[in-house]
Design a protein around this nucleic acid. Structure first.
Length: 203
DNA sequence: ACCTGGATCTTCT
DNA sequence: GAAGATCCAGGTA
Protein backbone atom coordinates (compact mmCIF):
# COMPACT_ATOMS: atom_id res chain seq x y z
CA UNK A 1 0.00 0.00 0.00
CA UNK A 2 1.40 3.42 -0.93
CA UNK A 3 1.97 6.17 1.64
CA UNK A 4 -1.30 8.01 1.97
CA UNK A 5 -0.20 10.85 4.22
CA UNK A 6 0.65 13.39 1.50
CA UNK A 7 -2.05 16.02 0.94
CA UNK A 8 -2.98 17.55 -2.40
CA UNK A 9 -2.03 21.20 -2.12
CA UNK A 10 -4.26 24.23 -2.33
CA UNK A 11 -3.15 25.09 -5.88
CA UNK A 12 -4.74 21.85 -7.12
CA UNK A 13 -8.18 23.05 -5.99
CA UNK A 14 -7.68 26.69 -6.95
CA UNK A 15 -8.50 26.06 -10.61
CA UNK A 16 -11.59 25.89 -12.86
CA UNK A 17 -14.12 23.49 -11.34
CA UNK A 18 -14.34 21.38 -14.50
CA UNK A 19 -10.60 20.74 -14.46
CA UNK A 20 -10.59 19.83 -10.77
CA UNK A 21 -13.52 17.41 -11.26
CA UNK A 22 -11.69 15.57 -14.02
CA UNK A 23 -8.30 15.60 -12.29
CA UNK A 24 -9.72 14.25 -9.02
CA UNK A 25 -10.33 10.93 -10.75
CA UNK A 26 -7.67 8.49 -9.61
CA UNK A 27 -6.76 10.49 -6.47
CA UNK A 28 -7.30 8.87 -3.09
CA UNK A 29 -9.71 10.11 -0.42
CA UNK A 30 -8.52 9.27 3.11
CA UNK A 31 -10.55 9.37 6.34
CA UNK A 32 -8.87 8.86 9.71
CA UNK A 33 -10.99 8.03 12.76
CA UNK A 34 -10.39 6.38 16.16
CA UNK A 35 -11.84 3.20 14.62
CA UNK A 36 -9.15 3.22 11.97
CA UNK A 37 -8.32 4.49 8.54
CA UNK A 38 -10.52 4.11 5.47
CA UNK A 39 -9.52 5.22 1.98
CA UNK A 40 -10.66 4.80 -1.59
CA UNK A 41 -9.72 5.80 -5.09
CA UNK A 42 -12.01 8.45 -6.57
CA UNK A 43 -13.73 6.98 -9.63
CA UNK A 44 -16.67 9.35 -10.19
CA UNK A 45 -17.20 13.11 -9.72
CA UNK A 46 -19.53 15.92 -10.72
CA UNK A 47 -18.78 19.63 -11.15
CA UNK A 48 -21.11 22.31 -9.76
CA UNK A 49 -20.45 25.95 -10.49
CA UNK A 50 -22.16 29.17 -9.46
CA UNK A 51 -24.67 31.65 -10.79
CA UNK A 52 -24.27 30.23 -14.32
CA UNK A 53 -25.26 26.73 -13.13
CA UNK A 54 -28.93 26.37 -12.15
CA UNK A 55 -28.27 22.99 -10.50
CA UNK A 56 -25.73 24.45 -8.09
CA UNK A 57 -26.82 25.36 -4.59
CA UNK A 58 -24.77 28.51 -5.02
CA UNK A 59 -27.07 29.68 -7.81
CA UNK A 60 -29.92 30.20 -5.34
CA UNK A 61 -28.45 30.55 -1.88
CA UNK A 62 -25.68 32.29 -0.09
CA UNK A 63 -26.62 31.44 3.45
CA UNK A 64 -25.66 28.85 6.03
CA UNK A 65 -23.40 26.05 4.83
CA UNK A 66 -23.68 27.04 1.18
CA UNK A 67 -21.54 30.06 2.03
CA UNK A 68 -18.63 27.61 1.96
CA UNK A 69 -18.82 27.51 -1.83
CA UNK A 70 -17.39 31.02 -1.85
CA UNK A 71 -14.67 30.01 0.57
CA UNK A 72 -11.09 28.81 0.41
CA UNK A 73 -10.46 26.19 -2.27
CA UNK A 74 -9.76 22.77 -0.77
CA UNK A 75 -12.31 22.92 2.04
CA UNK A 76 -15.15 20.43 2.32
CA UNK A 77 -18.75 21.42 1.65
CA UNK A 78 -20.93 18.75 3.28
CA UNK A 79 -24.73 18.84 3.25
CA UNK A 80 -27.61 16.46 3.88
CA UNK A 81 -29.69 15.12 1.03
CA UNK A 82 -33.20 13.70 1.25
CA UNK A 83 -32.98 13.99 5.00
CA UNK A 84 -30.80 10.90 5.11
CA UNK A 85 -27.48 11.03 3.35
CA UNK A 86 -24.40 13.19 3.67
CA UNK A 87 -22.84 14.49 0.44
CA UNK A 88 -19.17 15.40 0.21
CA UNK A 89 -18.03 18.23 -2.06
CA UNK A 90 -14.66 19.91 -2.39
CA UNK A 91 -14.64 23.67 -2.90
CA UNK A 92 -12.81 24.90 -5.99
CA UNK A 93 -11.86 28.21 -7.65
CA UNK A 94 -10.19 31.14 -5.84
CA UNK A 95 -11.51 32.56 -2.57
CA UNK A 96 -14.57 34.71 -3.24
CA UNK A 97 -15.76 32.76 -6.29
CA UNK A 98 -18.02 29.72 -6.39
CA UNK A 99 -17.47 26.14 -7.41
CA UNK A 100 -17.43 22.67 -5.91
CA UNK A 101 -16.93 19.07 -6.98
CA UNK A 102 -19.23 16.34 -5.68
CA UNK A 103 -17.40 13.08 -4.93
CA UNK A 104 -19.81 10.45 -6.27
CA UNK A 105 -18.00 7.11 -5.97
CA UNK A 106 -14.83 5.43 -4.71
CA UNK A 107 -13.07 2.14 -5.24
CA UNK A 108 -12.40 0.87 -1.69
CA UNK A 109 -8.69 0.62 -0.96
CA UNK A 110 -7.97 0.70 2.79
CA UNK A 111 -10.11 -0.35 5.77
CA UNK A 112 -12.55 -2.35 3.69
CA UNK A 113 -13.70 -4.36 6.69
CA UNK A 114 -14.44 -1.18 8.63
CA UNK A 115 -16.44 0.04 5.64
CA UNK A 116 -18.42 -3.19 5.70
CA UNK A 117 -19.27 -2.69 9.36
CA UNK A 118 -20.37 0.92 8.83
CA UNK A 119 -22.43 0.03 5.78
CA UNK A 120 -23.83 -3.23 7.10
CA UNK A 121 -22.98 -4.88 3.78
CA UNK A 122 -20.49 -7.42 2.60
CA UNK A 123 -20.19 -6.82 -1.09
CA UNK A 124 -17.23 -4.58 -1.86
CA UNK A 125 -18.69 -3.18 -5.05
CA UNK A 126 -21.62 -1.66 -3.13
CA UNK A 127 -19.62 -0.07 -0.32
CA UNK A 128 -18.80 3.28 -1.95
CA UNK A 129 -20.69 3.25 -5.28
CA UNK A 130 -22.67 6.44 -4.65
CA UNK A 131 -22.27 9.79 -2.89
CA UNK A 132 -24.33 8.83 0.17
CA UNK A 133 -22.75 5.39 0.40
CA UNK A 134 -19.19 6.60 0.45
CA UNK A 135 -19.93 9.14 3.19
CA UNK A 136 -21.35 6.37 5.34
CA UNK A 137 -18.42 4.05 4.58
CA UNK A 138 -15.79 6.70 5.44
CA UNK A 139 -17.75 8.18 8.40
CA UNK A 140 -18.10 11.57 6.74
CA UNK A 141 -20.86 13.55 8.42
CA UNK A 142 -22.08 17.12 8.58
CA UNK A 143 -19.55 17.66 11.37
CA UNK A 144 -16.83 17.62 8.72
CA UNK A 145 -18.33 20.58 6.89
CA UNK A 146 -15.64 23.26 6.40
CA UNK A 147 -12.80 20.83 7.04
CA UNK A 148 -9.70 22.03 5.20
CA UNK A 149 -8.59 19.02 3.15
CA UNK A 150 -5.21 20.67 2.54
CA UNK A 151 -4.22 20.59 6.21
CA UNK A 152 -6.62 18.22 8.02
CA UNK A 153 -5.44 14.95 9.59
CA UNK A 154 -9.05 13.74 9.75
CA UNK A 155 -10.01 13.94 6.05
CA UNK A 156 -7.84 14.65 3.03
CA UNK A 157 -6.97 13.66 -0.54
CA UNK A 158 -3.63 12.16 -1.46
CA UNK A 159 -2.19 11.80 -4.98
CA UNK A 160 -2.98 8.56 -6.83
CA UNK A 161 -2.42 7.15 -10.30
CA UNK A 162 -4.06 8.93 -13.22
CA UNK A 163 -6.79 6.91 -14.91
CA UNK A 164 -6.23 5.56 -18.40
CA UNK A 165 -9.62 6.59 -19.81
CA UNK A 166 -12.20 9.09 -18.59
CA UNK A 167 -15.87 9.22 -19.64
CA UNK A 168 -18.29 12.09 -19.19
CA UNK A 169 -22.02 12.73 -19.33
CA UNK A 170 -24.74 14.93 -17.91
CA UNK A 171 -25.16 15.02 -14.16
CA UNK A 172 -27.41 12.73 -12.15
CA UNK A 173 -30.36 13.19 -9.86
CA UNK A 174 -31.00 16.84 -10.67
CA UNK A 175 -33.83 18.50 -12.56
CA UNK A 176 -32.04 21.54 -13.96
CA UNK A 177 -28.72 22.02 -15.68
CA UNK A 178 -28.50 18.49 -17.04
CA UNK A 179 -27.33 19.78 -20.41
CA UNK A 180 -23.77 20.24 -19.20
CA UNK A 181 -21.51 17.15 -19.46
CA UNK A 182 -20.04 17.72 -16.03
CA UNK A 183 -20.13 14.20 -14.65
CA UNK A 184 -16.83 12.35 -14.94
CA UNK A 185 -15.92 8.77 -14.23
CA UNK A 186 -13.15 6.29 -14.89
CA UNK A 187 -14.18 4.37 -17.97
CA UNK A 188 -15.21 0.81 -17.23
CA UNK A 189 -14.71 1.06 -13.49
CA UNK A 190 -17.14 -1.25 -11.64
CA UNK A 191 -17.42 1.06 -8.62
CA UNK A 192 -19.26 3.96 -10.29
CA UNK A 193 -22.75 4.63 -8.98
CA UNK A 194 -25.36 2.16 -10.18
CA UNK A 195 -27.89 4.73 -11.31
CA UNK A 196 -29.79 3.94 -14.50
CA UNK A 197 -28.20 6.79 -16.38
CA UNK A 198 -24.74 5.65 -15.36
CA UNK A 199 -24.18 3.81 -18.62
CA UNK A 200 -25.41 6.57 -20.93
CA UNK A 201 -23.46 8.67 -23.40
CA UNK A 202 -19.88 7.70 -22.73
CA UNK A 203 -17.09 10.05 -23.92
C1' DA B 1 -45.75 28.14 11.91
C1' DC B 2 -46.58 25.24 7.97
C1' DC B 3 -45.39 23.54 3.45
C1' DT B 4 -42.28 21.95 -0.10
C1' DG B 5 -38.55 20.21 -2.61
C1' DG B 6 -34.52 17.97 -2.93
C1' DA B 7 -26.82 16.63 -6.11
C1' DT B 8 -30.10 9.35 -2.43
C1' DC B 9 -30.41 4.48 -1.04
C1' DT B 10 -32.83 0.46 0.43
C1' DT B 11 -36.45 -2.58 0.29
C1' DC B 12 -40.07 -4.08 -1.26
C1' DT B 13 -43.36 -6.06 -5.55
C1' DG C 1 -40.66 0.39 -10.86
C1' DA C 2 -42.30 2.59 -6.67
C1' DA C 3 -42.32 4.04 -2.09
C1' DG C 4 -40.48 5.18 2.32
C1' DA C 5 -37.04 7.02 5.31
C1' DT C 6 -36.45 11.79 7.44
C1' DC C 7 -33.45 16.77 7.62
C1' DC C 8 -32.97 21.34 6.43
C1' DA C 9 -33.66 25.98 4.49
C1' DG C 10 -36.58 29.09 1.75
C1' DG C 11 -40.84 30.85 0.75
C1' DT C 12 -45.26 32.02 2.14
C1' DA C 13 -48.52 33.40 6.23
Amino acid sequence: MPELNAHLERAFYERPTIDVARDLLGQILVSETPQGRTAGRIVETEAYRGADDPASHAARLRTGRVEAMWGEPGIAYVYRSYGIHAMLNVVTEPLGTTGAVLIRALAPLVGVDLMRIRRGLGEERLLCSGPGKLCQALAIGLDLHSTDLVTSERLWITPGASPRDVSLSGRIGISRGQDHPWRYWITGNPHVSAHRRAQSSAE
